[in-house]
Design a protein around this nucleic acid. Structure first.
Length: 260
DNA sequence: AGCCAGGGTCTGC
DNA sequence: GCAGACCATGGC
């Protein structure tokens, strides 16, 4: 067990539609990160990581929950917009998780024209059927499958997209490791070469899988709230951290989470 | 039964 | 570049 002092709102962060493998069971969040299974819950001013010792925490969860990023500074910048300021005050501090790029890419290919509970179910099926020890399956593993093999996960028309993307990544036709060091516009253009990846899925992969905080994915909810709140364009203070602002707005508009 | 879900592709203009 | 049909599935 490892305890880490932080004011991160765990419920808000894990249910804000950026990740799909965390589930709250008996007050404790259960998830799998880089193949490591963990239970996390809040106890006063601390988050408790049940299965982790200090080394595991430092190697996996410190990075994953983005504890090295100064969100105080980011939220101070975004507080120049009163809508975001109100949501931060009401809901608390959320982090943009540092998820693995391949998992993020496939997850958001699955998200197309889909709802969050079913996205979670399909990804759960994917990991149970094709992942090693409940981990997210590797590009090589998914690249070896056929659409018929994938039918057990009930992904529908997305099955073909998943396999094609996995093949492109496994063959380094799309080199995710290399893209890590590329500028945002290059990554976006490369990702959009994949079938099933348009602007929105590419931007979700950029924000959640490549941690490009300046990228704000625009789905139906965000499009609606942008048009309502900012008909004349987004506030200047969004620039660098539009992805973080977008996350607070998404939570409000989509109703994925309500403060209790 | 019909509508909706963190979209994207393909075709035709 | 933009509109519209279509894509597979499940919950309500």
């Amino acid at each position: 067990m490892y305890r880490y002092k932080t004011d991160l709102n765990l419920d808000l962060t894990l249910s804000s539609g950026q990740c799909f493998r965390w589930k709250k069971i008996n007050g404790s969040w259960h998830g799998v990160v880089r193949g490591f299974e963990e239970f996390v819950y809040r106890e006063g001013k601390y988050l408790v990581f049940e299965n982790s010792e200090e080394v595991i925490f430092n190697n996996i969860f410190y990075e994953y929950f983005d504890f090295s990023t100064d969100y105080g500074k980011i939220l101070k910048t975004l507080s120049n917009d009163e809508n975001v300021q109100n949501y931060v005050e009401k809901n608390g501090k959320l982090a943009i998780l540092r998820q693995e790029s391949f998992e993020t890419l496939i997850s958001f290919i699955i998200s197309a024209c889909n709802n969050i509970p079913r996205i979670m179910k399909i990804i759960d099926n994917l990991c149970k059927n094709f992942g090693e020890n409940n981990a997210f399956p590797s590009p090589e593993k998914l690249a070896s499958l056929t659409v018929e093999d994938l039918s057990v996960i009930r992904a529908g028309f997305r099955a073909d997209y998943i396999i094609n993307a996995a093949k492109a990544v496994a063959s380094k036709e799309i080199d995710l490791e290399y893209l890590e060091k590329s500028d945002t516009e290059t990554v976006r253009k490369e990702l959009m070469k994949l079938k099933g990846v348009g602007r929105k899925v590419a931007d979700c992969t950029l924000l959640y899988g490549f941690h490009r905080l300046e990228v704000a994915p625009v789905d139906r909810h965000i499009n609606r709230i942008f048009e309502r709140l900012y008909p004349n364009g987004l506030p200047e203070c969004f620039e660098e951290y539009a992805g973080v602002a977008q996350q607070y707005l998404f939570v409000e508009e989509s109703g994925v989470w309500t403060a209790s």
